[in-house]
């Protein structure tokens, strides 16, 4: 199996705080990997370094062998990395379908001239994107909600719409930031099944940040643990679970329901 993403010595500082501290990290193509750690461990910041929202001060990130540090966010998205947000960030006043169509932006060509002349290529592209957008909505279980404003969808629907929108960019690597946040155990398990289905049918590699240990243990093939920005453990879910340093990091924290 090939490595789809590799990070070496990635460091991101905010003033005196080192939020991500020389982290080495690799993901195999086609796997599902979890990134865990206590609050403020630097998980989201690490995501932001991968997607180009932050530029790490040190280190190297390669996506399919291509160095991405210094590239802009939209360029990295076009390469094939898509993400969802920890605190849902949909385009609230656009419809569900429009949200997914914005996601498809990097896979479209029409420019100003196409927009004004509305030529054949543009019309065909719009038709294709609309159809595909509907398919994606059906895939995530939002059939019939195409014309609802995103902000009026329920919480669970919004999470799914975020995934559909990310899938619109046709990613090879999908980053999910706490996809089960705020869900009860049943909903979380449904989300686990759904994430597996996404990998299977959409052919993507998945990296997720997760707090629910049940979810982490069931879904992940590998787990990486961050604490105060430092990678403290890595391995299969069982290995990580038994690692004393991990247990220590979570000590007193109610989050590790093992």
């Amino acid at each position: 199996m090939a490595t789809i993403l590799s990070a070496k010595g990635v460091t991101k500082r905010f003033g005196g705080l080192t939020a991500v501290d020389s982290v080495d990290f690799e993901i195999e193509e086609g796997s599902i990997v979890s990134l865990i750690g206590p609050n403020g461990a630097g998980k989201t910041t690490f995501f932001n370094c991968i997607t180009g929202y932050y530029t790490p001060e040190e280190g190297l990130i390669q996506f399919q062998g291509k160095p991405t540090v210094g590239m802009k966010m939209h360029q990295i998205t076009s390469l094939g990395i898509a993400r969802t947000f920890q605190n849902i960030r949909l385009f609230g006043n656009m419809t569900a379908l429009e949200n997914v169509m914005v996601g498809q932006h990097p896979r479209m060509k029409a420019g100003v001239i196409g927009a004004i002349t509305h030529n054949k290529a543009t019309r065909e592209e719009e038709a294709r994107v609309t159809t595909h957008g509907r398919e994606l909505l059906r895939f995530v279980g939002l059939r019939g909600k195409e014309n609802n404003l995103a902000k009026n969808l329920s919480y669970g629907e919004q999470r799914r719409l975020e995934i559909a929108r990310a899938l619109g960019t046709e990613p090879k690597l999908l980053l999910l930031d706490e996809p089960t946040a705020g869900m009860n155990p049943q909903e979380s398990l449904a989300m686990v099944d759904f994430i597996r289905k996404v990998r299977q049918e959409m052919n993507v590699t998945i990296l997720l940040i997760e707090h629910h240990m049940r979810v982490v243990m069931t879904i992940s093939e590998r787990v990486t643990v961050l604490d105060f920005g430092v990678k403290i453990a890595e391995g299969s879910p069982q290995q990580v679970q038994q690692n004393p340093r991990v247990r220590e990091a979570y000590l007193g924290s109610s989050e590790m329901h093992i």
Binding site: T77, F85, G103, H105, P106, T169
Partner: peptide, 27 residues
């Protein structure tokens, strides 16, 4: 025409949430 196009859509998206739009590949 501009508004009802890929460009118009990304303008609206940017108006709604600039970072999220950029994360969706909008320059």
């Amino acid at each position: 025409r501009l508004n009802n196009s890929r460009l118009g859509r990304s303008w609206t998206a940017m108006r709604e949430d600039e970072d999220a739009a950029e994360a969706m590949g909008v320059d």
